Simulated assay, not measured.
Amino acid sequence: MKFLQPLQMGRLIRRYKRFLADVRLPDGAEVTAHCPNTGSMLGCQPDDARVWLSASDNPKRKLKYTWELVETAPGVLACINTARPNHQAREAIEAGRVPSLAGYAGCRSEVRYGAEKSRIDLLLSGHPSRPDAWVEVKNVTLAEAGTGFFPDAVTERGQKHLRELMAQVAQGDRAVLFFVVNHTGIDEVRPADHIDARYGQLLRQAVEAGVEVVAWRADLADEEGNPSGGLSLTEPVPVVLDE
């Protein structure tokens, strides 16, 4: 998965009203970019951080730029655009790069399901010998000393998704929590018990109930720590559930 056009580098001035970010471009001009992330973005908005924006020529758009990447530490990049992970996971699955989810003939997005009226990110069907797989995708960008944590804020919605996944397993289907690791400084993923203890409890219960958990890292940066131009998932990352 590649960006359609080269990204524009700038310096973060501030993020505000959740969906807006002011950025200073190299020529000194200041622009307001769309921030496609409703979360806390903990650790992903350092003062004066280098950021990268995608640009649109669509005249109907209110804002030309969209915030895509941020340098959280020297040479360490994170993708904050939460519209990307579903596409990243789908591309990797359909390309056969995720062995545990290979062999499915069909993949649908945003399918309604569950007693709590959720929408699953990806529904895989048509495997010759395995049941349908309900795949919930989560973006991991909170990093501390090489460990990625999810969530970065208390998430009742995320708790609901875990309950829904457990219900699908109870009905005889597969259910998968898919962590997309969009941070080059993360080497393992853990539940953020220090942020949302209930989510951590539910995640462990879900695994005991048969929900599968996988994590894959994206190729955000080149050897110099600059954007590689790609978002493809390239390697698995261990998920650690020890408390």
Score class of each variant (00 low, 15 high):
A170V: 14
Y199W: 13
G158R: 08
I13R: 14
G43T: 03
W52Q: 07
G230L: 00
R15D: 02
G96W: 06
N226I: 04
G10R: 08
A21K: 09
I186M: 14
G126Q: 02
A221I: 11
G106M: 11
F178Y: 15
R84C: 07
A192H: 15
T38M: 00
R198T: 10
E224R: 04
F149I: 10
F150V: 13
V176Q: 01
Y104F: 12
L4A: 05
V23L: 13
V76G: 06
P46V: 08
A170K: 15
E208C: 11
Q168E: 15
G75M: 00
Y16N: 01
I80N: 09
T72Q: 02
T66I: 02
K17E: 12
A175L: 05
E110T: 12
N37V: 08
G126W: 06
S118A: 10
V181W: 12
L12Q: 14
L202P: 13
V137C: 01
I195S: 05
V169H: 14
L122I: 11
N139V: 13
A115F: 06
G225P: 00
T32N: 15
S232C: 07
F179P: 07
D196G: 00
D196Q: 02
A206P: 06
R108S: 12
L202N: 12
R112Q: 09
V239Y: 03
A197W: 10
D173S: 12
C44Q: 08
I186H: 14
I195R: 11
D219F: 01
L124C: 10
